[in-house]
């Protein structure tokens, strides 16, 4: 069971094998996606025809590589701007929320905290449709009563950003609150005693302390937005973010250019993941 309890070699062997198999299972789908991005074939499947870089560098159909596929490159750009917008909005609100829940006591705090957590248990598709119908209701109301045509309340990128922001904020709030909770109040008190204003204290002491958590939350937020599918699917207009563009191609059946995009995504996520691990490594504790 645990190392200090004697157990048979047989048991330990089986247990270790199970864990190894589990990790093989985890890695296998990603490994095949990566390997087949180098397959010299028009389909991401067997047989293996030898290696090629066409799916990255190919310049014309049918072997159009990702670096020349304007449609996919455009959708990466769309996803990037959406993710940036979601990250900025979520981080601002999440930082406010963290201060509110960690530093203030007020009537109904427990209830509001619970409400703040509910986006975690609302399926993404439903959050998407509820925001879709609510914004359409507002848009219809404004149009019927005041003759106002408000484009961004109709399906499209602004709505995608708002829809993702609606639930990603909760996750950012949890990350930032967790760090603010461990903050040593005496640092702020010392600064206050030395005559600093409250705003100056927050700016020069509390926010720098929170920086690793804010950067970490920012990376998680960015990735969650970049990879979001369910909520985006319901709110998307004519400009497709990457996940939607890839989904459409997958259903049509596509060349291994999708594998090449996936490899780029893996590399990008890995870099961001490493940065977040590095940033959040506590040096000051």
């Amino acid at each position: 069971m645990i190392p200090s309890i004697p157990s048979s070699r047989y048991f330990r062997g089986i247990y270790a094998t199970y864990v190894v198999l589990f990790f093989v299972y985890l890695i296998l789908p990603l490994a095949v996606v990566a390997v087949f991005s180098f397959n010299d074939s028009l389909f991401p499947s067997l047989p293996w025809n030898g290696g090629t870089l066409d799916w990255f560098l190919g310049e014309s159909e049918p072997r159009l590589g990702i670096f020349h596929d304007d449609e996919l490159l455009g959708s990466i750009g769309v996803s990037f701007w959406v993710a940036l917008g979601v990250t900025l909005l979520s981080l601002s609100l999440a930082t406010c929320n963290a201060f509110l829940f960690e530093r203030h006591d007020f009537a109904g705090k427990g209830f509001l905290y619970m409400l703040m957590l509910t986006p975690l248990v609302i399926p993404g598709v439903i959050l998407g449709v509820s925001i879709l119908i609510f914004s359409s209701s507002i848009a219809n109301g404004l149009e019927d009563n005041y003759g106002l045509e408000i484009e961004w309340l109709r399906p499209g990128l602004p709505l995608v950003i708002l829809g993702q922001f609606a639930f990603i904020t909760t996750i950012a709030t949890l990350v930032i609150s967790a760090r603010l909770r461990r903050f040593d109040h005496s640092l702020e008190e010392a600064a206050l005693n030395l005559g600093a204003s409250r705003l100056a204290v927050v700016r020069t002491i509390t926010l720098p302390y929170l920086r690793p958590a804010i950067i970490g939350a920012g990376i998680v937020t960015f990735l969650m937005s970049f990879e979001n599918f369910n909520t985006t699917l319901m709110l998307v207009g004519s400009d497709a973010p990457l996940t939607i563009a890839m989904f459409d191609r997958l259903r049509e059946g596509s060349t291994p250019v999708l594998n090449a995009v996936s490899v780029l995504l893996m590399v990008g996520s890995a870099i961001l993941g490493l940065i977040s691990l590095f940033v959040q490594k506590p040096r000051d504790e």
Binding site: P29, L30, F229, T243, L258, M266, S269
Partner: peptide, 16 residues
């Protein structure tokens, strides 16, 4: 690690 990568990519892997 696998979960830093989009669900779409993981599902695509299973399709292959």
């Amino acid at each position: 690690i696998p979960f830093w990568v989009s669900e779409l990519v993981r599902t695509y892997g299973w399709m292959i």
